[in-house]
């Protein structure tokens, strides 16, 4: 049912296709990429040509091959950080909402504190002290610092669900807390968890690019962020090598946009009030043709 609604939603279809496209081409990078991404295969800053589809970088590396391989790392970091974020958000949000009392107080306090601390400066301080942080470490620090918002949303939804009759009934017949949480509550939270996860992936991809762009990442790894970093430090735009900067920019933007579209669609599918759009349009069309009266 859920999937069927998703398929009928044009935004979801566009989003999913772009996302699938990116995942496939990054996974198939070893087959598609014409050159080794780390090898010097041309002159510095060669313009795009049939030989080098997206030109070459300052180091004479093939930008097209690089962007494919970079996708592997950037997408992996995004998904890993998203999983960590979602897991912590789910664990804290569910326990705070379901158990209440002391547990709730402690978790809510921690959540509120993290929400008022500035995220990026906190990440910058962490990354600066850690030195040149590897992609795995980036995924980890993004994951453990960005769960607060999701946790708050899941907690409030759990609180609302807790008051519903089916939960009360489950408690009355003596179902253990474990069963109530995983069998009764969790399925009702799926859409929130799903959109929270997609949001976390978007955030992680963006943040990774930001951290690496300013030079806090490991410059020897190949990701969209380090591509931006190398392009910027070799002043690519000032010497007119726009492709060097624009290609990773477009990759990040398209991937982020595809996830955003998907997220928008998930929201619409999960919230019938927001979904009324298609029906409204049909209604207006019918009005125009005089099939119904206002």
């Amino acid at each position: 049912m859920f999937f069927k609604l998703l398929i009928r939603n044009p935004q979801a279809v566009i989003g999913m296709s772009i996302m699938a496209f990116f995942i496939v081409i990054s996974l198939a990078a070893p087959i598609i990429a014409p050159y080794d991404p780390e090898a010097r295969v041309g002159l510095p800053h060669e313009a795009p040509s049939s030989e080098h589809l997206f030109g070459t970088s300052r180091m004479g590396r093939d930008v097209f091959s690089q962007v494919l391989y970079a996708g592997q790392i950037s997408i992996t970091v995004g998904i890993t950080a998203g999983l960590i974020t979602t897991f912590i958000a789910l664990a804290t949000g569910l326990s705070a909402g379901y158990f209440g009392g002391r547990i709730d107080e402690v978790i809510t306090f921690a959540t509120n504190v993290i929400l008022v601390l500035p995220q990026l400066p906190l990440l910058l301080v962490l990354a600066a002290f850690l030195g040149e942080v590897s992609p795995a470490l980036i995924a980890f620090i993004i994951g453990v610092t960005s769960w607060a918002w999701g946790s708050r949303v899941i907690r409030s939804q759990t609180l609302a669900l807790r008051e519903k009759e089916f939960i009360k009934a489950a408690e009355l017949i003596g179902e253990p807390a474990r069963r109530i949480i995983f069998i009764e509550l969790l399925p009702n939270l799926i859409s929130i968890i799903g959109s929270g996860f997609i949001g976390a992936v978007i955030y992680a991809v963006m943040t990774q690019a930001t951290l690496e762009f300013i030079g806090l990442g490991d410059p020897t790894s190949i990701s969209w962020g380090t591509m931006l970093y190398h392009a910027q430090t070799s002043s690519a735009i000032y010497v007119g090598a726009w492709w060097d900067l624009l290609v990773p920019c477009v990759a990040i933007s398209l991937f982020g946009a595809s996830l955003a579209l998907l997220n928008f669609a998930v929201d619409e599918v999960a919230n019938p009030k927001l979904r009324a759009k298609g029906a409204l349009r049909r209604y207006k069309r019918m009005l125009k043709r005089g099939e119904v009266k206002a």
């Binding site: 690019a209 900067l245 982020g256 946009a257 579209l261």
Partner: peptide, 14 residues
């Protein structure tokens, strides 16, 4: 929504 999911690095550079 799409605008929101493009990192500010990209918006600024473009």
């Amino acid at each position: 929504l799409v605008m929101q999911s493009i990192p500010s690095v990209v918006i600024c550079l473009v």
